[in-house]
Amino acid sequence: MPALFFIALGGLLWRGLYLDTRTLPSMLIDKQMPKFSLETIGGDIVTNEDLPEQIFLLNVWGSYCLPCLVEHPTFMRLSEEGEIPVVGINYKDRNDLAKGWLETNGNPFAYSIEDENGRFGIDLGVYGAPETYLVDSEGVIRYRHVSVLDETVWLEEFLPAIEELRLESN
């Protein structure tokens, strides 16, 4: 009996050692995207009305953010192959640096919402770039991934989540 108890407790604590405590769960899952009316880095005003009327990705990025460069090819592929629209949030960046970054590396975004002081990021519960949200056609946030979204994450996390959303809406 004590041995069993020890093994159970040991197992629990052992598991605890390998839990990911760095990734915060999003509070906005299954909630409507926060209301916004902001400029894109190109200077156009966009609001919730301008969001794609289909499932899309919302990617938080910045020109200072190295992991964003790592995940960039995946977003380029997704947008070039027309797999899913990607809306960007240019988080706590400078307009000229953001534009330069897109020019150098390519622009996978339908448009990038400018969030220079991070205020919109707070409403989304963002705590650092990169983060990627999966938003459904009703503008409801359904999934969040913190840090790099590479092809593996796309295959293992996003495709199943999108498949589930499609089944749900049928």
């Binding site: 760095r22 706590k92 991070g118 205020r119 990021g121 707070i122 519960g125 963002v126 705590y127 650092g128």
Partner: peptide, 23 residues
């Protein structure tokens, strides 16, 4: 501070902590 695990908002230099102090 949500970014830095075990620092409070007042002790953090993190970008998001700065924004949250402002809020």
């Amino acid at each position: 501070c949500p970014m830095c695990q075990n620092t409070n908002l007042s002790g953090s230099t993190g970008g998001v902590a700065e924004d949250l102090r402002r809020e």
